[in-house]
C-alpha cells in the first residue's frame, strides 16, 4: 500500500517534471517566434511608410 502510493507519487513527479520543462520550452520558443514575426511586420511597415 505504502509502496504503491510512493510509486504513484514518483510517477506523477516525473510527469510534472516533463510537463513543466516542455511547457517552458513551448513558451520560450513561442515568444521568440512571435517577437520575430512582429518585428518583421514593423520593419516592413517602416520600409513602406518610413
Amino acid at each position: 500500500m505504502q509502496n504503491q502510493i510512493k510509486f504513484r507519487k514518483a510517477k506523477l513527479g516525473k510527469l510534472e517534471f516533463t510537463a513543466f520543462y516542455s511547457s517552458i520550452i513551448i513558451i520560450v520558443v513561442g515568444a521568440i517566434y512571435w517577437i520575430i514575426q512582429i518585428n518583421g511586420v514593423l520593419e516592413m511597415l517602416e520600409m513602406a511608410y518610413g
Partner: peptide
C-alpha cells in the same frame, strides 16, 4: 496524462505553466 488524476496533487506552478503553454500553442 498529467491532468487525469486529482489536481490538488500537482504543484500549482506546474499547472499554471502548462496552461500558459497550451494557450500559447
Amino acid at each position: 496524462p498529467l491532468l487525469r488524476g486529482k489536481h490538488s496533487d500537482i504543484s500549482p506552478l506546474v499547472l499554471r505553466t502548462v496552461a500558459v503553454a497550451s494557450l500559447m500553442l
